[in-house]
Design a protein around this nucleic acid. Structure first.
Lengths: 126, 126
DNA sequence: AAATGGCAACTACAAATGTAGTGAATAGGC
DNA sequence: GCCTATTCACTACATTTGTAGTTGCCATTT
């Protein structure tokens, strides 16, 4: 498994678009993102290039001979890496304070709380 | 309450040192951090300056007339801001997937699980 | 064939970040 | 009073990030 590269914030949106659906050409990604980020196509191309250099994306030719982009790393792996680094940076690497923090600082429905408690139980005998 | 400024990674270590104990002079902070980060004193000074500019730290004169630094924002507020932004970036702003992720990806003791479940319950009737 | 419309490749450029060095002012130690 | 160590205030400089513009090439349209 390729080690998850460091993905910056704008880049992350591009990755999301491609994790969501790939392969896509540069202009397809641009269109996908247009509603949220209002980026010029060249901006998206730059981000795509950088992600390829970082090894987060791969390219391939499509039928009509244009370049198309697709993830080279799994979303789950990147999420884990980002999560690790965040937990390290803010909570000194400790999971419990992190979980306490988010449990306290967000409003959850009774339903969600129930699910989470189940998850916690399962996390024990595994 | 001063809005929590954006604190970069290296800067965060400096803030931690000062949240931990303040006020401290530049060289005290440097010594505090020396074991972990092996930074030149000037590096620490630069970070301190930038944090003052950002409004994350304040300065004061100590008895011997040298400048001393202390937090201008509460750690809790900064943690909340960072947490918000992280949750936004990686989990589209949703707390539950975040909590699920960390519950699954970290090993917790039975004791911790118990505490967390209690927290979750309390988060409901508040 | 000449113009046009996309795509690719390269270049641009400012702000933020990481990591210091230099030089001036100052304050104690002798 | 002079030297030396500390502090300060500036300056430096490479990388990364955010956000494009410019130009060359190619295929499609008149």
């Amino acid at each position: 498994m390729p080690t998850a590269p460091d993905i910056a914030e704008s880049e992350w949106s591009v990755m999301e678009a491609l994790w969501e659906s790939s392969p896509q050409t540069a202009s397809e990604v641009t269109k996908t993102l247009r509603p949220t980020m209002n980026w010029a196509e060249n901006t998206v191309r730059t981000l795509l290039m950088r992600l390829v250099e970082k090894g987060a994306l791969k390219t391939a030719e499509n039928a009509s001979g244009t370049r198309t982009f697709l993830p080279a790393v799994k979303r789950e792996a990147c999420v884990r890496a980002e999560g690790e680094s965040f937990m390290q940076r803010i909570f000194g690497g400790a999971a419990k304070p992190l979980l306490v923090h988010f449990a306290q600082n967000t409003k959850l429905t009774a339903e969600e709380v129930k699910e989470l408690k189940k998850m916690l139980d399962q996390s024990l005998n595994s």
